[in-house]
């Protein structure tokens, strides 16, 4: 069953077209990797999926059978969409635990489940922290404030572990992580993988895909997916660069259409 179905998605801002017709279907149980050069529109796609309203958008996006573009940011989150941000925001003064518990309970409320109290939440948090090998003291601090680059990224995946999304989008979660952290984060993401959820991994590096094995790899170039393939596409890309892809007949055909 498809979780996400993107049909001819276009987006522009200030008259500048960024996404030029994206088609992508993600089914339950799948992991998709999106690669592509800087500025090709990967983050824009991710932001539009979570509900950023800065863009004028055309096309259709169905999520879990519903029209996604009609939904508010928080509604999408409550319906199970999660973005691990490329640049997580620091929120001075808002305690991490308090914030995450509020988010968790909003999602539970939305699902018609009872809210958890502080004790129950703490138990959950402790269990999830182990997966990410995250230092518990981070949770006593304001959200992301003063976190190192790597800590911020790890914290995003920790939030993902707690909120248990149906569709997780990871925007360059690997950048800024040292090799040990990368392995921990990747194994965390793998543990969260189930038959009824899906993941979209945005990355520049094949390295991450050694640890999180994608079912599909897509190359986004100048606002279009110009090539899709299996995990071997990432290896090929690493070897031959984007230039090779652009010149590939499959890509030429797409760009022309």
């Amino acid at each position: 069953m498809s979780i996400l179905e993107i049909k001819n998605l276009k987006a522009s801002v200030d008259g500048k077209q960024i996404l030029k017709g994206i088609n992508l279907t993600v089914n339950a149980g799948e992991t998709h990797a999106i690669m592509g050069p800087n500025g090709s529109g990967k983050s824009t796609l991710a932001q539009i999926l979570v509900g950023r309203k800065d863009y004028s958008v055309e096309g259709r996006v169905r999520y879990d059978g519903k029209d996604l573009l009609d939904m508010d940011v928080e509604e999408r989150a409550r319906e199970g969409i999660f973005l691990a941000f490329q640049y997580p925001v620091e929120i001075p003064g808002v305690n991490s635990t308090y914030f995450l518990k509020a988010a968790y309970n909003e999602i539970r409320k939305h699902r018609g489940q009872p809210e958890v109290d502080a004790m129950e939440f703490l138990t959950l948090v402790k269990e999830k922290m182990k997966i990410l090998e995250l230092d518990q003291s981070l949770l006593n601090r304001p959200v992301n404030e003063g976190f190192s680059g790597g800590e911020k990224k790890r914290n995003e995946i920790f939030q993902m572990a707690v909120l248990d999304p149906k569709l997780a989008i990871l925007d360059e979660t690997d950048s800024g992580l040292d090799i040990d952290a990368l392995k921990i984060v990747a194994s965390g993401v793998n543990k969260l993988k189930r038959a009824d959820n899906a993941q979209i991994i945005i990355t520049h590096y094949q390295r991450l895909l050694n640890f999180i094995i994608p079912d599909f790899v897509h190359v986004l170039f100048d606002g279009r997916i110009i090539r899709s393939g299996g995990k071997e596409l990432a290896l090929e890309l690493e070897e031959k660069g984007y230039d090779w892809i652009v010149k590939h007949p499959q890509a030429k055909e797409l760009v022309a259409s």
């Binding site: 509900g51 989150a77 509020a102 988010a103």
Partner: peptide
């Protein structure tokens, strides 16, 4: 506000938190 909302917290609640 966007970050808080993207985690499921309602717009009004996000405002209040800040």
């Amino acid at each position: 506000i966007f970050y808080l909302r993207s985690r499921g917290i309602g717009a009004e609640n996000a405002r209040r938190m800040l």
